[in-house]
Structure formats: structure tokens, C-alpha cells
Design a protein around this nucleic acid. Sequence first.
DNA 1: TCAAAACGATAACAAAAGATAAGAAATCAG
DNA 2: CTGATTTCTTATCTTTTGTTATCGTTTTGA
Lengths: 214, 214
Amino acid sequence: MRVSVVANPIGLIFGETFLMSSPENILRSKIGQLVPMPEEDWQLIAPFITIRILKKGELFAAEGKVGKDLGLILKGTMRHFYTKDGEEKTTYFYFENAFTGPYLSCITGQPSQLSFEALCEVQIIVFPYRKLAEAFDRSKHWERFGRLLAEWALKGVEERMAGLLMLSPEERYIELLNSNKRKILERIPQHLVANYLGITPVSLSRIRNRVMQK
Amino acid sequence: MRVSVVANPIGLIFGETFLMSSPENILRSKIGQLVPMPEEDWQLIAPFITIRILKKGELFAAEGKVGKDLGLILKGTMRHFYTKDGEEKTTYFYFENAFTGPYLSCITGQPSQLSFEALCEVQIIVFPYRKLAEAFDRSKHWERFGRLLAEWALKGVEERMAGLLMLSPEERYIELLNSNKRKILERIPQHLVANYLGITPVSLSRIRNRVMQK
DNA sequence: TCAAAACGATAACAAAAGATAAGAAATCAG
DNA sequence: CTGATTTCTTATCTTTTGTTATCGTTTTGA
């Protein structure tokens, strides 16, 4: 891995100079947050990393296809959605610095029930799951990364599900307001937020009204 | 591992003789379904396995405590529940042959928000998560088991959540009727099923009525 | 065995959510 | 700038759910 010291828009904040954050370094650093990753192991994935630019509305992965690639979002916002009775149901959003893609489909090898769509122009680091799976076999560090990633995802989904089972729609909205996911409310069209909360857009509008008056 | 050929209540079904299914073998075979586990690796956990009998109503793990043990149910049914406003909210059931226990708390090291309770007399194979975590460090097979376990759990929770977001309470009840989780309806008190579906017992009673008439 | 507790069905009412339609406000494309 | 589209609110009506309470029945435990 080449490491160069340059000024970049991020590095120059407050006049400091950082190690250059190339896409490769960003991904590596993100992964390094979970597990140490020696150079040799890193090279199992590094050669297969690419950068993709998605236009607004473009799909990163589509329903019915077996997942191939995962990604780390550098810039922009994405959503995933199910299709039911011809209607799209958005159940998750992805922001900068988040892993995204048809993880479950990659794991199971079954066609994805989810589609992944860019909500604006999105810049994303892409790597093939197949190579990750190979790395699981060849490197205990990658195997551990795989475990921690799954555990981390599990933790998130469990928390979300507890909210759906224990809280009313209004309570869920209030909790969203008070959470660090508040940015969902700021950047995302309301009918998608409604889907996320498991209610209709009209109902969300009413809830907002009720909550506002308190 | 000692393997003895004996007649046992399970082994004698249809007059055949199986390898004895000692608790240890049952656990090993269950784990072997996910990942091959050589004897040497197996011995990282085997010495720490115990059997526990839980009386009806007894807790296997309690809210507020950091998770220590996980288990595999040999016989009986368990539930896990949150406590909210002094009310218990049951959100999952465990049957024979299922892993159970405060998995998330074990992973995170945070106090569990969940309690695990025996719904009848329960026979359960218990092993300390601490030893499993040590095995992660020492054995790639165990590390892989950890990954697959987390992925498997993730898959289950994701499917459940999709149902909560996409289906109405009535649809969820009908889906439960038509699923292989139907046994939930047969063995479990109705107010707990209602919790599981994210509705009140009264509402479930009405839904049953509506659905019955169709 | 017997009293207490748990469980389930049902009724009545209030509160909330879904469906639909109409219209205001913001955004976007040409 | 303007017309079209998207987004959000509001209103009405219907359906569903929540809440509370009552009443048998079953289960439990002493």
C-alpha cells in the first residue's frame, strides 16, 4: 500500500495535514476499526477494490439477483427497499461511511429480496463478496472481520426490531427524533421515512403535527 | 471424545441403534451442521459444557446482567422478553434444538436488556461464552462458527423485521399460521403470541375471530 | 380439594391508522 | 421564468387497534 502525505479537502481542515485518504485507505481504515489487518491479508482484497459513481435513482443491486458486490459509501445517501404489491417499501437508509449492499443475499446465495438505490449522486467503494469469502478461508483476520460485521449488523437489526415491537408509531418517531439517526429526518423524503417507521406518509404527517404541539 | 454405542430412547426409534446422543454429542453435531469441528478444536469447549434443568418460570439469564452463558435447548420451550413500564414484552420463543441465551449481551459486554425464561421444565446444554470467545482466538473453526452463527441469526431477524414493516398485524398472524413457526401458536399462551406479533392480546383475539370466519 | 391466579373471549368506547382526494409548497427541467 | 413533478399537509371517511372492564374457564399451587 502506498501512503502519501498530501493536502486534501479533508486533511486541510484546521490547517492540519493528514495522511492522504485515498479510497483504499478509507476502506482499510474503516475495516481496521473492527479488526487489525496486516498488509499481507489486506492484499487479498485490495486488488479488487473499485470506485463507482451512482447517479440519483441508479440501482447498486436489484431484487431477484444474487448479490455480488458490497460497498462502502464515500459520499451520498442510499436506501434499500422491498417491493410488495407493486409498491416499494423502504426499510433502511445508508449514509456516508456505511457499508451497504445485498449482504444477506451474498451470505445465503439466494436472490435478493431487496433493491439498493442511490438517493442522490453516490460515490462508493465496491468490492466483490466472492473475494471476501475467499479471504475468509485464507485469513483469520478476514474471518474475524466477517464475524464482527455480522455481529454488528445483528446488533443494529435487533435494536430496530425491539423498537418496532415495543413502541407505537408515534413513540418510534419521537425516538428517531432523539437518536443519532436524526439525520434520516433531515435528508430523506417523508414518504420514505414513513416506510422506515412502518406507517403511511399521511400518518407520519399527522404524528409530526401531534408531536410538534407538545 | 468418547463415542459409545448404546440403546437410548431416541436411538431405539424403529428399532435402530444409533451412536449414543449424549448431550455433548448433540451439541457437537449441531455445531457440526454449521462448520467442521476437529477433535482438537472441539476440546476447547467440550470440558466446559454442563447440563442444566430449568423449572417452569426459572430465568436462564436476567435483564441488567452481562450475559455469561449460552445454551442449546434439549427439551422444552423458552421465551425472551423486555421489560417496559413494568410490563413484560415477549418478542421471541425458543424450542428444542435451538440456541438460546443473551447472545447480544455476550457480544457487546453490555448488560442484557432481555430476560430468558423457561416456559416449562427445560433441559439445556450450557456453555460459557467466555470460552467460546477464547476459542475464537485459538481456532479458525470456532471463529468461523462464530461468523456463521451471527449470520444465521441476522438472517432470521431480518426476515422477522421485514414482516413487521411490510405486513399488517392480521397479515402477520396469517403468515404465522402458514409458517413452520405454527408451533408457536400451539404451545404458547396467547398473550405472549400477541406480544410476538406486536399487538395486544385483545386485538389478537379479534384477529383470530376475523380470520376464522374466512 | 379448593381458593387464587392465569387465560381467553367479548363488549363498549376512545384513539389512532389506513385510504383517498384535494390543494399548497418546494423542486426541477427546459 | 414557467410548467411539470415531487413533496407535504389537510380533510373526510372507514377500518383497525388500544384500553378497560366483565365474565366464564382452565390451570396452578398450597
